[in-house]
């Protein structure tokens, strides 16, 4: 058996006006622990309002390059009932835009169909990566748990480099030395 448990992808929301975005992943033995591990790994610093975790195997992903091959369309299974899927995109290549972010939802009866519909619906941006996630696979933090999960990070000033003001001292030493040399 794998000594490292399973992988859950982690999505964090940093501000009320920003969507959830993929932060990375955690290993966990089950969903409940995955959410806690996500908090401990990714919320050591402030600015998290909400966390989601998703078992990695529940994610259907395609890069634009992969989409050039249409084989995935034929894998479509229309057997299951229609359900809600969340659509994520990577919309840019610069450091700020390079994360996979939540852009909206579609109803479909398979991940493949959800992607087809997403391609029709969310086509306003240059997209490099698509992720399709069934809503039922997402584990979200309870709103009532948010204070104990996210607020404490605001008090941890010791993780902020401004708590170690070394530049003024170095500047002072430098100007003292320059005065000495003159």
């Amino acid at each position: 058996m794998d000594s490292q448990w399973q992988i859950y992808q982690v999505f964090e929301k940093e501000r009320a006006d920003l969507p959830h975005r993929n932060a990375g992943s955690v290993h966990a033995s089950d969903a409940e622990m995955a959410l806690e591990n996500a908090r401990d790994v990714f919320v050591r610093r402030p600015n998290c309002l909400s966390l989601w975790v998703v078992p990695e195997r529940a994610i259907f992903s395609k890069t634009v390059e992969e989409l050039q091959d249409n084989a995935w369309r034929t894998e479509m299974q229309n057997t299951s009932a229609e359900e809600s899927y969340l659509v994520f995109q990577k919309q840019g290549q610069t450091a700020r835009e390079t994360f996979v972010v939540h852009v909206g939802d579609v109803a479909a009866n398979s991940p493949q169909q959800a992607l087809e519909r997403a391609l029709e619906t969310f086509d306003d941006k240059n997209v490099f990566v698509w992720w399709i996630v069934p809503e039922r696979a997402i584990i979200k933090n309870e709103a009532s748990d948010a204070p104990s999960m996210f607020e404490p990070a605001h008090w941890k000033k010791y993780r902020n480099h401004l708590s170690y003001p070394v530049e003024p001292i170095m500047r002072e030493l430098k100007s003292a030395q320059e005065m000495l040399e003159e």
Partner: peptide, 17 residues
């Protein structure tokens, strides 16, 4: 395991805080 190394350090940090 790595995730819990981080989590338990959080608890230790909180207690020291």
């Amino acid at each position: 395991i790595l995730e819990e190394d981080i989590a338990f350090a959080n608890i230790a940090l909180d207690e020291l805080g």
